[in-house]
Every structure is written in structure tokens, then in C-alpha cells.
Amino acid sequence: MKYHILEKKNLDCFIKNLLKKMKVVAPVERGSGNYSFAEISSADEIKCDYVPTILPPKKYFMPQREKIMDFKEDGDVKESCYIDGEKIAVFGVHTCDLSGLQCLNIVFNDKPVDHNFLMRKENLFMIGLECNKYCDEYASCALVNAHLPNGGYDLFLTDIGDKFVINVNTQDGEDFVESIKLPQASAKDMSELEKIREEKKKIFKNEIDVEPSKIPQIFEKSYNSKVWEEVANKCLSCGNCTNVCPTCYCFDMEDTLNLDLKSGERIRKWDSCQFETFARVAGGENFREERSMRQRHRVYRKFKFPVDKFNRFFCTGCGRCSRTCMAGINLKEILVKLAEEVKF
């Protein structure tokens, strides 16, 4: 593991050097306490101290609307599939979101692999940023162990006062810090980093009174819980919770035809299991007709199905679903209620 140092006063120089090589996106302020990842041209625009952005950086790996293919009819139909190969640096990604991207990476590496996702990933230069304290009361990153860096980045920054310690995780990362001649971290810098990690142990504690190791057993017994009915009574089926989730990837496909009626595109766009039509088939049958079934489905897709299949939670504790819910549905409360019902 290699560690370098970036003086905070040199952040703009760091960004300008990145900009020479690629587009840079970073968290920027959107007003009313909202933030989003957006293209920047200088470090002034970056908000390093931010609560999770409205949309997670999954939008760069799997855009909300993504062209999967062009087709053209000329006697026979010819299709061609390609992605925009632009290189982008994503600056300031919290550990919860890095964890979310790893979940998506697992899914899209599962056969048949998703070439679009994997090729976009190749073009993204990931720069993480550590949270030294909680963003707000919705977070539950310690519960799912996503409050510390666990890979998924090229470079990872930790704020140690007037400088960042940069952990270099890839050769691309190394090449970049070498190219701008960032000094190596000193023993003193490293002990500062140690101190922050020690401090974090005191700050970041399991946010709810439920042992993570018990969660799989809770979900074994919660399929017919009355909690789903309670949640359904509040839910408006707006789909916000799934849109903002860093590990939701359900999608719909749409064909569009150009004016020549001979060529067009197949588009992949985000979809939500919370929509009433999501599981409806022609003829009218709907396999998740009730809201309670749909909410249960969402939560099972975070804490049960991925545990069975990939041995990890697909919740990163970012808190977005609860933060954004217009009806005040809170994921932590759901977990606590389920645990109470099952009573371990």
C-alpha cells in the first residue's frame, strides 16, 4: 500500500492536472442541503463536506437512459452496440457509494456479463473520500461495514487537517500521483491517519440495535411479517427509494424509431420494482400487485436475496432511500421492527 500527501491548498492544482487528462465530476452544492455529482472545472466548485448526493455515482456506470444499440433497416436489419468511451474522473466518492458500485460490479460480472457496465467502468477513474464523521442521522454505514475503505477506487483521500493522505490502490492511480509529483506520506502523516481511524471507531457504531450477523436469520422469518403492511400503508409507490439507491439496477428496455422509420435505437432505462406495472404481464395478471409485496421485495433485494447469492448485503447504509422518502419510510426502522418481531 502506498500513501501520498496532497496539501489542501494544492487541491485545485490536482484537479487541473486531472482535467488535462479527462473530464472531472465531483459533489457540488444544489441548494436546500442537496448535493449532486456534476462536471467541474476547478476545485472551488467541489463540496468535500457533503451528505450523500441525490443520485449515487452509479449514474456514470449505468446511465438513467443508455443507448444499448443502434439499428438500421436496409433490406435486413443491422445493429451496432457501442458506448461513449469518454474517460471521467469521479472525485470525492464516499465509502458507502464505493461499496454500492462493488455490488453493481458483482451483478454485472455475473454471467452473462454486462459489457456496457464493464466497459464504462474501465473508463472511470475513481477517487474516494473518507467520511471522518457521520453525514446525518439516516446513515447506517457502520451496520453494513461500509464506513471504511474497502477497495473499488484508484485513489482514496482522507482529510487529516490541512492535507489529504492519498491511498494509492491501482497503477493508474500511481501513474497519476507520480506525474504530478505528490510527495510520499511521512511517518507523522501516517500516524495522523491512524488517529482518525481510531477516532472513527468511537464515532461509527452499529446504528441500530440489531446484530448484522443476525440479519439473515431475521429475513428467514420475516416474509409474512405485518411490517410490510404497515410500510405499505405509507408508501406512495413513487419509486424514489429505488432510483436513489446505489445498488438498485432494475431496468426497462425501450425501442425508439427515427423519423425515417428505418433506423432507431434500443434504450435501457432505470425502472423501479415499486411501480405497479413492474411485474404486470399482458392479459392483466400482476405478480406484485400489492404495495406491501413491492416494499418487501425492495428490502429483500437488499438483505436477503444478495446474501443468498453473493454473500453480501446490497445495502451500503448511505441512507438515501429514507432521506428521500416523501412518506417518511425509514429503512433503519424497518430493520428494527423486523428484529423485534422475530425476537432474538
Partner: peptide
């Protein structure tokens, strides 16, 4: 029979309502 959009275990539409 379920709603299907990909056939590759990705789009999520066809997942059975089941524990």
C-alpha cells in the same frame, strides 16, 4: 410466466415473489 425485459437475470422484472 413473468414480465421479462432481458432474459439474462439482470432487469429484475421476472423475479418471482418468493422468499
Amino acid at each position: 410466466e413473468r414480465h421479462m425485459k432481458c432474459g439474462m437475470g439482470k432487469c429484475g422484472h421476472c423475479q418471482i415473489d418468493h422468499p
